[in-house]
Design a protein around this nucleic acid. Structure first.
Length: 270
DNA sequence: AAATTCTCCTGAAGGC
DNA sequence: TGCCTTCAGGAGAATT
């Protein structure tokens, strides 16, 4: 399930294969993703060059000569660079043809999106209301503390709210809360500044470490060449229900918070 | 306004 | 072995 580190890993993986390349065409085998893939891309794309490959939150931008392609990988999406004639599998929905190579979008669960905009993509309706990037200087403990004053939701839900901060999905929320010693159920407004200071730092650290490891491969995530990420081996609480807490040895608890499974240590996290 | 619930979809895993 | 059920999950939309 691609979270921010996996999307950034994907971006870094595909970027060198795409920069400056001309798109010769697009093959859409299955247009029904989260939103229909615009069919006019078939006319729009041929001849355009890819000028930049950027990321904002979990969205990827392919900046073209005219306009920008916006891609979201949903929870099972992946992008790979393949020979143009590679046989497509059943969930390989889209190919961008780049001469001898192609950029292929696979998304078995089809929660992802592939859109196009002529305007500034950061002003796009899906993008413009997003909170700050977690790795930016704008995001810190003071910021979290300030925004949380009237929020009664669990701190885990609070940091997973993309209007608060982007890119903190279920896995990394659990991990950063464990590292910061905060019980995920604790309500946002009952969490002190010094706790938010540490939490913000742990979020930055866990995301940076995951990017350095090439992302977390649990089920669906693979690199642009099909290889796996290694951060799963560094997870301290996620998926470790009933196993010993790596700090105190007591069993890790699994509980559903806001419709999402959360893993934590009731002894180490308050 | 904030918080919760619903929804999209398919593969994996568990029960019988 | 195979069918059936349940679960996972990002995030917008709908609802309370």
């Amino acid at each position: 399930m691609p979270e921010l580190p996996e999307v950034e890993t994907t971006r870094r993986g595909i970027e060198p294969h795409l920069l400056g390349k001309a798109i010769q065409g697009i093959v859409i085998r299955q247009p029904r993703l989260r939103w229909p893939i615009p069919q006019r891309l078939k006319q729009l794309l041929p001849g355009q060059r890819i000028l930049a490959v950027e990321r904002r939150a979990k969205y990827l931008f392919l900046r073209l000569t005219q306009g920008t392609i916006i891609i979201h990988l949903g929870m099972s999406g992946s992008l790979r660079i393949l020979p143009a004639n590679a046989q497509p599998g059943s969930h390989d929905h889209v190919d961008f043809l780049l001469g001898e190579k192609c950029l292929r979008l696979r998304d078995p669960r089809r929660f992802g999106a592939l859109l196009w905009t002529a305007a500034d993509p950061t002003k796009h309706k899906l993008i413009q209301h997003l909170g700050p990037e977690p790795l930016s200087s704008e995001f810190d403990g003071h910021y979290l503390y300030r925004l949380s004053r009237n929020r009664k939701v669990a701190v885990k839900n609070f940091i997973m709210d993309s209007k608060v901060v982007v890119g903190v999905g279920n896995i990394y929320a659990s991990e950063s809360l464990f590292r910061a010693g905060i019980n995920p159920v604790r309500s946002g407004h009952c969490t002190a500044l010094r706790r938010y200071m540490q939490l913000a730092e742990e979020i930055k650290q866990v995301l940076q470490e995951a990017i350095a490891q090439g992302g977390t491969t649990l089920k669906d995530f693979h690199h642009e060449d099909g290889s796996a990420g290694y951060f799963a081996q560094k997870l301290l609480v996620y998926g470790r229900e009933n196993r010993a807490c790596l700090r105190c040895g007591r069993p890790i608890v699994k509980r559903v918070i806001g419709q999402r499974s959360s893993f934590y240590c009731t002894h180490c996290q308050h």
